[in-house]
Design a protein around this nucleic acid. Structure first.
Lengths: 223, 223
DNA sequence: GGCAAAATTTAAGCAACATTTAATCGAAAT
DNA sequence: ATTTCGATTAAATGTTGCTTAAATTTTGCC
């Protein structure tokens, strides 16, 4: 994972670089805004950390320029404790998060991880106990035999499998599979759970989709 | 995550509520300051969103009152574009962030997330002496054996475990597990303590949930 | 476009389960 | 001894999710 630090105070820049390298990130440092913009434009980073108060080209300017050229790299900025107005402008300019100075390094690290995680690639093959779902070919197999699922059935199963071991609340499911403005008192979800169960559990016994009453559903081993 | 909105313009209040509910927040709305203060005092929220210009009790007053009673819940306020002086007063009164009207919903959401994130992360695994509670899978194990709990049983146990070592008053428990509009002379709590004890202490040994007569309950080592 | 087939949503009845109420019993506190 | 508070039951009530079937919408095809 490559991180760019744009920071003019060399002490802070070094502190950040050392800390992040200890965490096995690969780090570049730019000591002023124009160098920062140049690096950010010409190289590929997974995340950019910018001090908001920079001489020359400001953090805001860097953010705006990058967003203008359609770069989606997460940008996190460091801001002085009381520069609240800047914060607002920063978020509007396209920053993803901000951290107030002085900060705990642990907190910075946590924020960085959150940003990197949202960027992570999605799994194309999901599986559970002889059940295989392939997002690229849009196929599902059970014990090697293909099962035909409709679009809704597929995305419902995909969501459950993606979160196997965890409980998916009815709300989570409806939000992800049906998208937002959905009548929450509809019973479509129940019906589709029923469809899926019939197709997946045909023939053999075991439940694959478990109901957690009052909460939602989950795919996991029975205890 | 529970959010309280205190906003007198019903259109804006509804807009906010719908938007936040789509993001899976659980939302309460108060249409004036005194109702807002009442809710904020008696219920537990993860964040409070207050319009600064309220008839009756103002946003500042609400913030001051809450901070006086030592509530640390993040407070974010919505302020008219040019009320800069109010903004300053608000931050001094104890607000955590503010957003200028008119605002983009996306930005509001970003601010809310920042506030919620800094609010120490919720533990997903809680445990006590061979008892393990996992919020992500909604499972409870005792000595490695899964125990099935209903929603209420689960959230009651969760609350007790979250506060293990401390005494939870009957009121605390009822507020958190049953939410407020509850007949305080009901014996549901007693019944549920009984349910839990039967399931957790089945067969063997030591009490896990101790009664503190006249006060409430606690999970802790015997003295 | 118009038709048929397939996919999705709605609605209703029902059974299983969760929760509350209420009444009685027992143990601690004054 | 009396009163209060909590424990324990059992019964009443409320809620949730499963299952169907029919209604509606979407899709694919001519």
């Amino acid at each position: 994972m490559k991180i760019l630090i744009v920071e003019d105070e060399i002490g802070i820049a070094n502190f950040l670089r050392d800390g992040l390298e200890d965490e096995n990130y690969s780090v570049d440092v730019a000591l002023d805004g124009s160098r920062g913009l140049e690096l950010a434009t010409n190289r590929i980073y997974d995340l950019i950390l910018v001090d908001w108060m920079l001489p020359g080209i400001s953090g805001i300017e860097i953010t705006k320029q990058l967003r203008k050229t359609n770069k989606k790299v997460p940008i996190v900025f460091l801001t002085a404790k009381d520069a609240l107005q800047d914060t607002v402008n920063g978020l509007e300019a396209g920053a993803n998060d901000y951290i107030k100075k002085p900060f705990q390094f642990e907190e910075l690290l946590a924020r960085i991880k959150v940003q990197l995680r949202t960027n992570e690639e999605e799994q194309t093959i999901l599986s559970y106990q002889g059940l295989v779902l392939d997002t690229s070919s849009h196929q599902v197999f059970k014990s090697g035999v293909e099962i035909n699922l409709t679009k809704k059935e597929f995305s419902l199963l995909y969501f459950l499998l993606k979160n196997k071991g965890k409980v998916c609340t009815r709300n989570d499911i409806i939000k992800e599979v049906w998208e937002i403005n959905f009548e929450t008192d509809s019973s479509s979800l129940d019906v589709y759970i029923n469809f899926l169960r019939k197709k997946l559990e045909a023939g053999n016994s075991e439940n694959i989709i478990h109901t957690i009453r009052g909460i939602g559903y989950t795919i996991r081993d029975r205890e």
